[in-house]
Design a binder for these strands. Structure first.
Lengths: 224, 224
DNA sequence: GACACAATCCGGACCGTGGTCCGCTTTGCA
DNA sequence: TGCAAAGCGGACCACGGTCCGGATTGTGTC
């Protein structure tokens, strides 16, 4: 089963490797195994780093954790962290990979209404609920892992979500500019917004879910 | 006439000054003159800094400009920059202040359909066009000025836009959760998204405008 | 198996930049 | 003219990110 992890195979890797294509659509989205035959020591260090990072984040909060601390806690040099994960965002995203994979599996090939089998508007509603749930469960980390504004929409997880929602939207609202409308829908699930609404405005999560449902209804013209 | 500049009176100012209230609604939104009786030297340095910053940004691009460079070009110490503008984002936002003020004036008290007098759905459509236009005209700076994810929704210009759109939406779509729906609409005008669509996906600006119009139609149930 | 060699990876010294701090100067008011 | 408040500025710090000489790994050869 193919997933879209947070990492590309090798972050600062060779400039345009041959890139063997299987399923063009999926490969283009960045869907690939996320540990492409690493050398033994590299793999070991990668694991150590993830473990150390997870521990530190759990202990002191995501944005109180320093790259140098992580390296030290893993018994590894600072350079190793950056070679493996590219940058701070990359490391944090790697920490979120598991959860994201699970969500992807659920809406790509899980049971309805999230997975295939239910009508598109229904799947859209389910997608919002699931994504929201996932976002809330480790909001803080998700916030800290946000890439700089220029790359928000280029990062694999976002592209996968976009691809999926756009597909559903094309069925549920054929006369709309689905490419664009999808960005708008996804904006309501943006970790930064969710954090703002819940932790700064004190909204209950249920209200966000209701708003999503309502938004889907309005946009597709359907009603649950 | 009252505006909501990018800066609060004094960024890292006293912890909760008395804050004299006039029009609670507006003050709460951060609407106030943006140069609150600065001392002579301070005002002079502020002006110098803005001028220097504008020059450097125009010359070398927004994100190639260093705070130290700006300070040097203004013939001023680094500390002065930060005291006056809080942080890098603050300085960049100050550079955008003029344009933002003009937009605010236009939709708060300008002629219809942007200003008061036109039906709400119409004003919404006009707002999108105007905001999009403004965003595009110095996208790069707008991108560089984006605050960190946690504050995107707390910054005065966003709050003013939100307040305005929410008000229109309450009239045009009374049965919706306007508070939330507004965030969703505004997301389509987000500089980061606009930049992505135009410069990375190569979409023409017209398409963004059309999408906004369509979105307003769907959300309010009206048609132009 | 032993060996040699190339590709890969390691790690910590190093750099640039955003942001802070505090002793000194300027300002404006009485 | 004196004096408090406001402002100034550059030394200083922390942290993200880079770089390159040296160590590890794995593979082809005998």
């Amino acid at each position: 089963m193919l997933y879209a992890g947070f990492m590309s195979a090798a972050p600062p890797s060779a400039p345009t490797p041959p890139e063997p294509v299987d399923s063009p659509q999926l490969v283009q989205l960045g869907l690939d195994a996320d540990e492409p035959c690493l050398r033994a020591d590299a793999a070991r260090n990668r694991a150590r780093l993830l473990e150390a990072a997870a521990g530190l984040v759990a202990a002191h909060g995501a944005d109180a954790v320093t790259m140098e601390e992580v390296a030290a806690a893993a018994g590894v040099g600072k350079g190793t962290v950056f070679r493996r994960f590219g940058d701070r965002t990359g490391l944090l995203m790697a920490l979120l990979d598991h959860g994201e994979k699970k969500l992807q599996a659920a809406f790509l090939s899980g049971p309805p209404p999230l997975g295939p089998g239910a009508p598109p508007a229904e799947r859209l509603r389910a997608f919002g609920r699931a994504a929201l749930h996932r976002t809330v469960e480790d909001l803080e980390l998700q916030l800290a892992a946000q890439p700089d504004p220029g790359r928000r929409f280029t990062v694999p997880p976002y592209r996968v979500r976009h691809h999926h929602v756009a597909m559903l939207l094309r069925q549920a609202a054929p006369d709309a500019d689905c490419e664009l409308l999808t960005h708008t829908l996804l904006a309501q699930l943006d970790p930064a917004l969710v954090h703002h609404l819940i932790h700064q405005c004190g909204m209950p999560r249920q209200r966000l879910e209701d708003a999503w449902t309502d938004l889907v209804d309005r946009v597709t013209g359907t009603t649950a």
